[in-house]
Design a protein around this nucleic acid. Structure first.
Length: 234
DNA sequence: AGAAAATGTCAAACACGCAA
DNA sequence: TTGCGTGTTTGACATTTTCT
């Protein structure tokens, strides 16, 4: 195995200089940097992840907890996962995947053992049981979804308000006057994932004096269809 | 010539297994 | 129980170069 000392000897510098070339945390002259990079390439050096974690107290690994169960659109989850992995690689990090089944124990395991530097948690619910734990850990975390009590947490989500507005404006401009919103499956509502109840029902300004937009939850039959009042997008 | 900036090196530290 | 070895990072220090 090629070590940093081998690279240093080959390039005629000290190991610390090699380390600084790799991390970019200090300025190194162009000529020295070129020599070190050349030696790294020639020798095929790859830093030892364990030794690096030992010295820096950082693993360069992020945990991503994804939901995998009924009612979850796996392709959508995978889009998030791929984005996380791609962005992590751009910053020289890798991603450790956890399923939601592992729950708080899983999060505690990877955080307390220093297996990961930070945690990303998907499918956050209004009253999510994982929140007290995430607050207590000495690792930063980011939630995808907004819980009820989010003041001290870092949360992100899609802009459903903007998405709803854009959809309604678009359909209204095409001349549609009755618009139905078909929501998620019933179990998503039962679980009270934060984003779903907050999906706004928009009315285009031209139809405010007319009938309101209606929302249909996934898997439900519309009341209108039972009575002959059809909410048909047209 | 002296100060400041740039560059390079040294040595301690990290967590843990293993041998003495 | 103690000390060593592992590979790397990083704060502190030393040396060289550049600027005023």
């Amino acid at each position: 195995m090629v070590k940093i000392t081998d690279v240093a000897r080959h390039a005629g510098v000290s190991p610390s200089t090699v380390s600084y070339v790799l991390s970019g945390k200090r300025s190194i002259s162009e000529e020295t940097r070129r020599r070190v990079r050349e030696s790294i390439r020639e020798l095929g050096y790859r830093p030892h992840a364990g030794a690096r974690a030992l010295a820096s107290s950082r693993s360069n690994v992020l945990a991503l907890m994804i939901p995998l169960r009924s009612g979850i659109a796996v392709p959508v989850v995978m889009q998030f996962a791929v984005s996380v992995v791609t962005a992590a690689r751009r910053h020289d990090h890798d991603v450790l995947l956890l399923t939601q089944e592992e729950g708080e124990d899983g999060l505690r395991r990877v955080a307390d053992s220093a297996l990961v530097d930070a945690l990303i948690v998907m499918d956050v619910q209004m009253k999510d049981p994982r929140l007290p734990l995430l607050r207590s850990l000495d690792r930063p975390s980011v939630l995808i979804g907004f819980p009820a009590d989010a003041e001290d947490l870092t949360c992100i989500d899609l802009d459903f308000h903007a998405a709803g507005a854009v959809c309604v404006e678009h359909l209204a401009e095409l001349g549609h006057r009755e618009i139905a919103l078909i929501g998620s499956p019933p179990e998503v509502y039962e679980r009270q994932t934060q984003t779903v109840p907050r999906v706004p029902v928009y009315q285009h300004r031209s139809q405010r004096s007319r009938r309101p937009a209606r929302e249909m939850r996934g898997g439900q039959r519309s009341a209108g269809s039972a009575t002959g009042d059809r909410h048909r997008p047209h």
